[in-house]
Design a protein around this nucleic acid. Sequence first.
DNA 1: CCTGCTACCTGATGGC
DNA 2: TGCCATCAGGTAGCAG
Length: 272
Amino acid sequence: MPELPEVEAVARSLRPLVLGRLIRSCEVVHPIAVRPATARELARRIAGARVANVVRRGKYLVLKLAPRHRGCLVIHFRLDGQLLWFDSKRVSGHVDVVLHFKRGVLGFVDRRHFGRVLWYATRGDCAGIRTLGVDPLTARFTPSSLHPLLRASRRPLKLFLTDQTRIAGLGNIYSSESLWRAKLDTRRLTHRISKAEARRLHKGIVGVLQRALECCLDPAPDFRDPDWWFQGLERILGVYDRRGAPCRRCRKRIRRIEQGGRSTCFCLGCQR
DNA sequence: CCTGCTACCTGATGGC
DNA sequence: TGCCATCAGGTAGCAG
């Protein structure tokens, strides 16, 4: 479930814990999490490296390693991936990959084993990162840059918004929310969207992401709590997981449909 | 190049 | 209470 705001909050909260610190060793408990690499390969790459920076690219969390030729550690949480921090060397619970620092241990956890922890010489070597579209929280994402993007594509708005190669970072939740905020029908085709509607959509996307990020940072993730997760996000959501409930704007019942094999929640009353 | 479909996983949920 | 079926969803890889 982590999308752009959640990963951004994780990046900001993790940075002070690991910045400048030395990765002494790496332990892989569930090898599936580092596939297609092997535990030995990953350990050889990152053991002895220092964390030079922690950044987010789309929904990817990237630990840049120093010196530069040590490459970068790329983490993708997919649906349920999560980070935990242990102050002592003792690690409890289900943990897939463990990074031992001089003081403290970073654990990557994902019971469903969809998430990945991968090493690349450069971040461009990661295909998923290389092909990412514009980051919607940067100045390069503007109403006037969104309109041509929409015109260049021919598909339902919802599917366009979850395509990471166009706009990076939206998933099932915030794509639906952006469209609700913009009062646009999720089934509308991108190339038929007017300039004024594109402006509304831009505002919807940026607005919901900023609001969600604020929420994700207050309270900030506490990796020391094995049960930590983002709190209160449901309060800022207009449609996601609200099937059957009244629309907060027009009181009509929120509908759920399927798009691209995924569920989309939206309001037939005010999204047109 | 563009778009759409499916496999990958496993915990949670719902029906009987 | 217990069992089985279904659902959830991001992305890689493949098909058309």
